[in-house]
Every structure is written in C-alpha cells, then in structure tokens.
Design a protein around this nucleic acid. Sequence first.
RNA 1: GGAGGCGUGGCUGAGUGGUUGAAAGCGCCGCUCUCGAAAAGCGGUAUGCCGGAAACGGCAUCGGAGGUUCGAAUCCUCCCGCCUCCGCCA
Length: 427
Amino acid sequence: MLDIKFIRENEEIVRAAIAKRRYDFNLGRLLEADEARRGLLQEVENLRAEQNKGSVSFDEAQLASLRLLKEKLQKKEAELKKTEEEFEELMLQVPNIPDPTVPEGKSEEDNVEIRRWAPTPEGRGPDWNVGRDKIPIFSFKIKDHFTLMQKLGLADTERGAKVSGFRGYFLKNDGALLSFALWRFALDYMLQKGFTPFIAPALVKENIFVKTGKLPQFREDIYATEDGLFLAPSAEVPMMGYHEGEILSEDELPKKYAAFSPCYRREAGSYGKDTKGLYRLHEFMKVEQIVLCKAEHQESVRWHEELTRYSEEMVQALGLPYRVVASCAGDLPFGFVKMYDIEAWIPSEKRYRETHSSSMVHDFQTRRLKIRYKSQDGKIRFAHSLNNTAIATPRILQSLLENHQKEDGSVEIPEALRKYIGKDVIA
RNA sequence: GGAGGCGUGGCUGAGUGGUUGAAAGCGCCGCUCUCGAAAAGCGGUAUGCCGGAAACGGCAUCGGAGGUUCGAAUCCUCCCGCCUCCGCCA
C-alpha cells in the first residue's frame, strides 16, 4: 500500500507508474473518493467537537438538543464509513512505483538480462567447456536432471504421487543428503554475512497473509487449513509477520534474517507446466533472505544489490552458469519497486530458468504491517523491506545435477558442498 | 477435547458511566550538580488522521467490530489473541 499523501502530492508519478506497468486503475476515482472522505471527515469531526463540548450539562432542554445532534452525527458517520470503505478498497489497488531503472515492457519476454556468469573450464576435464556466450558445452550427450536422479536413486516421484498426489515426490539417498548439504551451505553463507538464522513457521494466520498482500489476491494459489490457518508459500510471509505492529529503534536496523521453511504453492493455473521433474512443486524447502532497513531509497538500493550479490556468490560457489534478469515493468509484481531474478542454466532445456528472486519493496508491505522504527530525529517511519532467495530445493538440483554430470551418469559434487555431504561424487 | 482466567501507553500496573489520553513506578531524553561518571534534583516523554507555511487547533485510539447512552477504558453482544489446570501427545 502506498501513502495517500504521496499519491495526492505526486499524482503524475503514480499515473506514470500505472501506465508503465500497463496496469488498469482509475486514479481519478481514488482521488475523488479521498476528497469526499476528507470532506465528510471534517464534518463529522466538527459535530463530535460540538458534542464533546455539550456533554457536561444536565438540563432537559439541552439534553434534547444533544439528542438531535447525536442523530445528525450518526447519519454523517454512516456516510463517512461508506466513503471510507470505498477509499480503502481503491487504495489496495494502487501498485507500487517501479524504480526508474526498471525496464519498459509488458511481459516476461521484455525482461532484460543484466549480466551472465559461467564457471571457468579449468579443472573440469576435457568433456566440458564454456562458450563465449557463457553457455556450457558438453562433449557428450547429456541427461536431464530427472533421468539422472532416477538412475542415481535420488528421487521417487511415482511413489511421491501415490502418497502425496500430483507433483508429489520423495527425495532419498544422496538426493536427501544433497538437500541437507545445500540448506546448511546456504545458511552458513548467510551467517557469515551477519544474518540471523531462523526456522520459520509455515502455518500462518490469515491476518498476516492479508497484511503481506497475499490474501485475498492470491487466494487460489494458497493452501488453506481447516483451522483457518494458511500454508505459507515462502518464509517471507512469517518473517514479515515477525515484526508486525512493532516500532523498532533505528540502531537495531538493518535486521538481516536467513529463514528456513517449507513452502507450499498450489500452482493453480499451471496444470500442464513442468510436470516432469522437480522444478514446479507444491511443497519445497527454502532458505530465504529478509532485510528490514532504514526508509531511504539509497539504502534499499544498496541492500537490493547486496542481497542479489549474495545469491550470485552462492550460485557461483556451486559452479552453476546463470544470468541476472531485471523484471520489466509489465512483469513486475504489484507491490515491488524492482526485482531481479537469478536464472540458472538448464543444459537439457537449453535455457535459463529462475532459481532466485530478489525483490525491493520499499515501505509498501511494512505500511500495512505497521513495521516502523524511530529514527535519530525522533520521527517514526515505516521500515523498508527486501527479500531474496538464498537457496530453494529441490529446484536448484535441476541445474546442479545437470551441470555437474559426467558422461557415465555420475555427478560431481561442487567443492563448496563436499564438506556438507562428505563425498566428491554421486554415482 | 474439558474447566477457568486475562487483554490499559516502550514496560510494570491503577482506574468500573462525566475535563481520564488515562494515576504511580520503571525505562528513555534534556538540564542542574561533577574534572568526568554514578547518585540525586528539576523538566519532558503515545500513536494515527484532518486542517495549517508554521505556531497551533480539531478528531480518534485503553485487543478488534458493533450496540446502549447526551456522554463508555468502564455496561451489553460478537470476534480475535494470550494464559493456567486436566486429558492426549512427537
């Protein structure tokens, strides 16, 4: 949610933001509702002031006139309430302002590649090289991750479906161990960057979902339970809820959290997509980076670049070719100011696919969650928030296994993970 | 699952229909004292919205939403949250 004052004073900026996003919203209607609301508010407040002044008297004549005043007030209050409801509803539909650096465009196709990275071929043996376009070249016929996993006994999706339904899976043997290794690797990396480790609940109350902007908008993508709790699609939800309603002090900022949690997504509307393999799942695990920082644009920008860099360094340590893509305005989620996706190279599909998503949110989320801090000058401000994936499993396994496969179907473990899994090769 | 209790400012905690936005204490900030610090003393210290260039003024807020009343932290209804005991339990 944006600040209505900001909208009033910067109508053109908001209008331009809506246009840049190719979003459909009637800003004029909001501004009219705001004006109507403020007019009525003034009337109601004047009536209340009158009432407050008169309410110490006890003689009959005055009581009678106060009764009349009350009636008048109640009518106005009802009118005000109606107007305020309309206003609130419209406010929730105003998207965040994209950063000026966010590329123009209407869909995923217009997202802009910012940079590419690939490991150097040194020490990788003669059957692996990397082209000028940073895309790996294998000298043998590669297998896709799913084939590799089945041959190596790392996953069982048949029994997964039997037990857990569509998109269900079991990870087993080195598939399970590799997942633990990745979580711990990511967590250790984040610890070294000064993040506080968390295990976050996946069962989260409805009001937190509402305040984080997930409900009701994404209702059909979220699992509900019989107890009115919902399953979080990301630790972002419980972690943003963590400080809900609090006033922090400036010197405790930035808050840097690395939160592990299971994640649940119904993936409604993607029924035909990615049905083979472990890319799109209803249940997965993730270590998420969360930052709450001071309400300054430059501070947000700095953290956004920083969080993105952390993920890149982890992907680099895993030896995976990747690119960073800036989401264009048309593809930028409603509440975000800017977003980078990290996409890892998938050799079997000859394309990059999203493994990380790094978002800059400004105070859009914290305003609804009332996460504030008292700054040095005594002012209370809404903190800025950011989030980014540290590691998501099993998704990352797709790129990891495929890029490190050998001709014989074995998979070499990247150096960075060896101490966590205790072996060099999965064979 | 059964029984009961409780939600007041940053915290502890008074307050049961009429200047109560709310006593007191703690904490925090400023000043005095001091070479400095501590202690002590004095003063200040909620948030949101609306209007205003500002000073300032108005309104709201005692878990939330309704209701009763001229008037509600205080009475009524519903909801939410928390806690204790018993039962069950990784």
